[in-house]
Write a protein that binds this DNA or RNA. Structure first.
Lengths: 192, 192
DNA sequence: TTAATGTTTGTTAATATTCACTAACATAGT
DNA sequence: ACTATGTTAGTGAATATTAACAAACATTAA
């Protein structure tokens, strides 16, 4: 979609880090410019407004939980394995860039701008729908129990993962997210 | 614990509503004073600082998901019934005061003040621990399957409920939270 | 009963600070 | 010469908070 310059990517990452460490109040043009190492007005050479920077953040978030991340490499794979891999991959990406994890499940950050709020809501909705569809497919193929609604199962899976990531962030990444994700999906496998 | 005057309660509720509707950026002394119908400095007759108001909010949140809310009325009750009732009650309370629901699972709101952040983290931790303990008790009594770790089960239950409430808030309370909570726990019952 | 006094809760006006953003100008590479 | 990217110095608006003062009310003393 949008192609960002190196400087823009740098600004987006700096913003992400600021939010992760100091909350949405920490995201000021002054702080961004300090982190990037240029003056405040120089930021405006790369983004028209602060809202534009936030849109850049959302675009980066989309990358990290967007459509493709649910498409399995191998169509013949077991449905449960697909789900497990999807979330393990996310955990891996969050571990690589913890700031994304801090922002991706904090919709509240965008609540004062309806454009941004709608965008983050869409990402959430889409990701959940993908999960529901995969589960349904698994149920049709007899790989997942069908006495539980796919919607409810998706709520549990996505909800549990979100909470795990939130706890990971709040603990200042003090445990191995990937490992805990695996443990979670081991437990889930016994259920579905 | 803390005893609030009527005016203080009014300020806390106004603040809660502001956050719920406009996000943390909407919470300004000016907006609070407008909502309460007094001048800005008058707010300082009732709270020493804005942080103090936020502490008041956290105190109110504690009421709504605190210790007692997990204590069962009837000790002889089925463990699963206790869990179901606990969360149904929470859903009821959120329906009565949707603004609390908007704030209670949005830790990001408090991220710029370590005192507040630690407080909300504690509430979260405590609530989760209570859930784990109840599950363990249920497992010991043979009412809940024991081939899944209590920690993982709690993660699923609390996580699913949190996500449900978040979706409810983001949809501007467009569905019946209590009903959906019941549906969720019907599904959970089939698993545990 | 009345006068004096203190407390509570409010007001208007002003404070310093921070915010996002702009104008004008500089420099280096194409 | 032009464009991209930077600078310094400033803008007005919004922020939390304080100072100084006033009305309403309760308590106490004459």
């Amino acid at each position: 979609m949008t192609n960002f310059t190196d400087r823009q990517k740098q600004i987006i990452q700096a913003s992400l880090d600021l939010i992760a460490n100091y909350g949405i109040h920490g995201l000021t043009i002054k702080n961004i410019s300090k982190k990037v190492g240029i003056s405040e007005p120089a930021i405006y050479r790369h983004f028209e407004s602060k809202t534009d920077i936030l849109l850049g953040i959302i675009s980066k978030i989309k990358e990290s939980s967007g459509m493709d991340s649910f498409v399995p490499a191998d169509e013949t794979k077991n449905t449960i394995a697909i789900i497990r891999e999807t979330f393990t991959n996310r955990a891996k990406r969050f571990t690589k860039n913890p700031s994304i994890a801090a922002v991706i499940f904090s919709e509240a950050i965008f609540e004062n701008n309806s454009q941004l709020y709608a965008a983050i809501g869409n990402i959430m909705e889409e990701s959940q729908m993908k999960c529901v569809n995969i589960i349904k497919k698994g149920q049709n193929e007899g790989q997942i129990v069908d006495y539980i609604d796919a919607e409810q199962l998706a709520l549990m899976i996505v909800g549990a993962f979100r909470l795990l990531v939130t706890k990971w962030h709040m603990s200042k990444n003090s445990f191995d997210l990937e490992e805990q994700t695996k443990i979670l999906f081991n437990a889930l496998e016994k259920i579905v």
